[in-house]
Simulated scan of single mutants.
Amino acid sequence: MRRADSVVSFADEIAMIAMYQRALRTLLSLLLCVAGSFALTAAQAAPVAATAPPAPLSLAKVQALISSASRGRATAQSIFAGPGGLTGAVVSYKDAPNAPPSVIWVNDDASALLVGKLIGPKGEDLDKQAAQKVGLLLAPDKALAAAALPATNAIMVGSKGPVLTVFIDPNCIFCHMLYQQLEPLVAKGALRARYVLVAVVKRSSFAKAAAILSAKNPAAALQQDQAAFDPKTEEGGIKPDSAPSKAVTDRIGANNALMSKAGGDGTPMLLFCSKDGSVQQLEGMPRDVNTLLAELASRPRTRLRRLKRSTVQTLPRDMLRQRGACRLSAGKSAPARSG
């Protein structure tokens, strides 16, 4: 009996030790959790030392980096604050004195350059927005105001509805596809289209644009070009004008320059008044024309006072009676004539 009692007692002691160990581990875990909670609370309550933002870069510092990186071929004309702590620089190039300045980016300590497209969170072209902000490119509202002037000899088709301004090349296949999609909408009065003729796609584009603008009825000439368009060769169907007048030549050249000044990289380039009151600019074939149509505003919200005085002074008197920049797109463009 005594041996059995000893065995039982020893087993009980082992079980009690295991129980105490489990309890000790549980208590230790609780203590660690409580200690961690107090530490976290204290850390949250403790004042965080503010990190001073980096000092704005000077033009001299930016120029030193650009000059070094370009081996003296580029010059920073001016700088401005950019997104995400970047500094924008307006740069010209000694190798291309006639080329317009461009925008490049410098990091916060002027140790590296960013050259190329800077894209925003919604896919917006931040390079182009910056160029518009500093005056290298026309903002969309000013580009629309310029496109609406009689000097462009734009071709207005349609009698009612909001206006879509399209920079169109006679040999541009995407312009042709857009023209085909807009034609039935124009016919039923859903919109009006203002076509600004440019020549940027092929060598024959200039002579074909001249033929359209020199025609007695430019709208009919444009329709002829599009009706006979050859998708295989990507050629408009109108017969080129081999000897256009200087006036027509100058008009096409000025339209090309306007599209370039607006930042247009190709055709079609679209300008229109949006329902939110802003002027929007799109490049290329819209994914869905009906969706685009739903975005067009029939009444303006942007007022003429937002435009520079120099811009307003160049507008025809009948346009100045309109309420806003978006309303400019509702005015009638002057008919295109030769000479």
Rank of each mutant, 00 (worst) to 15 (best):
Phe272Ser: 12
Gly85Ala: 12
Leu144Ser: 11
Leu182Pro: 00
Ala99Lys: 12
Leu282Cys: 02
Ala64Thr: 10
Gln77Ser: 09
Phe206Tyr: 07
Val7Gln: 13
Arg305Ile: 08
Asn98His: 10
Met269Ile: 01
Leu113Asp: 12
Ser9Ala: 12
Ser102Asp: 09
Asp141Thr: 10
Asp127Ser: 14
Val196Gly: 09
Ile252His: 03
Asp125Asn: 15
Ala334Lys: 05
Ala4Trp: 05
Pro218Gly: 06
Ile212Gly: 08
Lys246Phe: 03
Leu320Ser: 05
Val166Ile: 12
Ala228Val: 02
Ala145Met: 13
Val201Asp: 12
Ile238Val: 12
Ala52Gly: 02
Val90Arg: 09
Gly253Asp: 11
Asn98Ala: 15
Phe167Ser: 11
Phe206Ala: 09
Gly161Glu: 13
Ala294Arg: 10
Leu296Asp: 08
Arg303Phe: 04
Val106Glu: 11
Ile173Ala: 15
Ser102Leu: 10
Val91Asp: 08
Ile252Arg: 02
Asp230Trp: 05
Tyr195Asp: 07
Ala131Pro: 03
Ser333Val: 08
Ala46Glu: 13
Ala221Val: 02
Leu185Ile: 01
Val198Thr: 12
Asn290His: 09
Lys142Tyr: 11
Ser205Glu: 11
Leu271Glu: 11
Pro286Ser: 08
Lys188Tyr: 00
Ala81Pro: 07
Gln77Gly: 02
Ala154Tyr: 02
Thr75Lys: 11
Arg309Gln: 13
Met269Gly: 08
Ala148Arg: 12
Ser242Asn: 10
Ala221Glu: 07
Val48Gln: 14
Ala145Trp: 03
Ser159Val: 06
Trp105Leu: 08
Asn255Leu: 08
Gly266Leu: 05
Gly72Val: 04
Glu283Asp: 05
Pro97Cys: 11
Leu113Asn: 10
Ala96Phe: 11
Ile155Ser: 12
Ser204Trp: 00
Gln280Tyr: 03
Ile66Leu: 14
Val34Ala: 15
Thr291His: 05
Ala243Cys: 01
Ala220Asn: 07
Ala334His: 03
Ser92Leu: 05
Val200Ile: 13
Arg203Thr: 08
Ser78Val: 04
Leu31Met: 09
Leu144Cys: 11
Val157Asn: 05
Pro268Ser: 08
Ser6Ile: 04
Met319Tyr: 03
Asp241Trp: 01
Pro56Trp: 02
Ser298Glu: 13
Val198Pro: 05
Arg251Met: 03
Phe206Cys: 04
Thr267Pro: 04
